[in-house]
Design a protein around this nucleic acid. Structure first.
Lengths: 212, 212, 212, 212
DNA sequence: AATGAATGAGAGTTCATTCAT
DNA sequence: TATGAATGAACTCTCATTCAT
């Protein structure tokens, strides 16, 4: 079920040129440094100097691997998207019932946020800095959701509803709760009682009219 | 029930000094210009030059009324917060049943977004540029919600649940749906079928277990 | 007979904005500094830092008055063009016979080169850096020549010939002799014997067939 | 009559080391690439990357054959000088009378310019980039002229005059007319009427007083 | 109250050259 | 002989802020 954009592209240099092993290492170092720096300072206050310093390479080296500051950012957002989706899918696959998979998926998402607060902030900046890629990001997560929702509806496990709308609602909840209780909160994860409240709301929202 | 931060503060100059009538006019012009410029270019690409040009004053004049670029931005976000809450409350007050008020509140929010897409973008930038004020923004909206939810729960109109968690869920849904169907969408408002789907989910989520 | 491009344009800032007295002074300082720096280092090795240092202003100040390095250069070339033509015309106007005016014009040109070797080098660079403006430069000088040549032909003082072609020949000679004997030469001016040789060639070249 | 600097020097590597066949091929490729790149972009905007890309070798390879960017440029100018002189001489040798040789020489020069506009631009840049070599360039052409002029004077074919001065005048005319009518002009060569005008001026200029 | 000239640090980016393989 | 990664200084240009009038 994996689509083309799930595939991790082979790393290449700024002109699309192939890389030696050494080149791959440097590129990775730069990408990781960029991730950290963007997260800490935000897109605009992240500078190439800071990134190259963090990667321990000279300024010019940056441009051997990326065409511009914007380009690394874009790549980072796409990369993050792949990783979030992977994390969620991996977790939810372990559940045996539909509801359990739902819970595990959310848990997986919150854990991901807790582990990569850096990346979370990057996504949020994309609204201004790379709007197209942000939409792509949401679309992709949405598509994954829609699939599962359709199956569950067909099986009568959840009520009939427009799966696309529902998918955006679920994303919304995940993102906001993640921000409020993981990023801004004091604890490292969404507290159990809050999590239960959230899942309660979601389950009722998804339920066939008349049960829940 | 209005709290202190609901009150529109009397405008003052950069040093907190009182303003003449002329001063008030200039300040207002600058604030409006800033709003437009921040919305169009984003925080970082908005420059003082652009703002003062739009306000038709000299560059130096800016600093007679604001201490820094950051400060105008903060003020703008706070101002926007007041306006959104006002718009929502005004609308929902016109409903007679709880569910109707809920619907009207959401409608009000989406209309506000449609009319002020500019301001919506400003809020989103605040995540990076003025995180404290952004949290303040959400908290205030949350508090308004919580009030209403508590009353409704007491009246048995909706199910028992942690009203704070629910309030954040409602905000999440409003914001994401607003972005997806109003800002990025082709239409000027959330299409009726989508709106119904959203409200359906919300009503089920809020419902007492066993009804809906 | 002065044309529009002979008129010295009122100095203005980068955005075309009007200048205060102080502004005019700074602009002039920058222009003079640019002239010196371009001449000494050539277009590419002339840097804004060097120019602003020479003008004793901060780097940013440069951009209050000029939009780019290229723009100052263009302006400088145009300015120089005005000055060369003025110098030549002024000198040649003092002559009483046609041949004398010819000699005085050349003398004026060589003197100008001797006094402004800086500007001479700037012109030469224009070939690469601002080719359109360079052609403009030659065209304007040519036009001035053509006028005088036509009159002289009508009066039978020189032979019939295409005045435009002749004008380019005269420019060519002036420029090359100026480079060879003034700029690269040891003396500060074209030695008398060389000058006489040059004028001899020119006079014969201009002469009506059969005399000289 | 050929002098030492007419001899095409055996190609060698950066340290003056001898080259294998393969080395010679690489070096030639670089030189040709450099010619094209300098001509298209000008000295400063020509980069080693562009040159090595055009030559299809790696960046580092450049420095196996040349010590610096400047050095290739110098070599290119010298090479060009050889070729222009060769082209002119070859053409003028075909004439039977002195005047005919004169015409053919000019024609040859203009044709060369038309065929190698690229190289023409390189020469012009040398004024700033490699002034000494530019003077060398003119000197060499001048010397060739002087020879011929002296012979013609001795034979009474042209008037007595300082042959050096005359040679610079002739170069001046060739260069300017070439620029004006070949490079900037619409046609591929100097139009016949212009050419006749030019040669008329030159012949009169060279003539013994009293004839022409 | 208002102007606009001036500042200067810092941004992203380029490029001739060197070095390790 | 050839590669291509790495360097780092230098470049042009922007902009929030201050200052003199």
């Amino acid at each position: 079920m994996s689509t083309t954009w799930d595939v991790d592209p082979a790393p290449s240099g700024a002109g699309g040129r192939a890389l030696t092993n050494r080149g791959v290492r440097t590129r990775t170092a730069l990408l990781e440094a960029a991730e950290a720096v963007f997260a800490e300072h935000g897109y605009h206050d992240a500078s190439i100097v800071k990134i190259t310093e963090a990667a321990k390479v000279a300024q010019g080296t940056f441009y051997l691997y990326f065409e511009s500051k914007q380009q690394v950012f874009d790549e980072l957002v796409r990369d993050l998207n792949r990783r979030v989706r992977h994390a969620m899918r991996e977790r939810s696959d372990q559940g045996s019932t539909r509801a359990e998979r739902e819970r595990l998926g959310f848990r997986g998402y919150f854990e991901f946020v807790a582990e990569h607060p850096a990346l979370y902030r990057i996504i949020r900046q994309a609204e201004i800095v790379a709007p197209d890629i942000l939409r792509e990001h949401y679309e992709r997560i949405s598509i994954g959701y829609v699939e599962g929702l359709r199956t569950a509806m067909a099986a009568g496990e959840i009520g009939e509803a427009d799966p696309e709308v529902v998918s955006w609602i679920l994303m919304a909840i995940g993102e906001m709760v993640g921000a409020r209780w993981v990023l801004w909160g004091e604890s490292d994860t969404v507290p159990d009682d809050v999590f239960d409240q959230v899942m309660g709301f979601v389950e009722r929202g998804l339920a066939t009219r008349g049960d829940a």
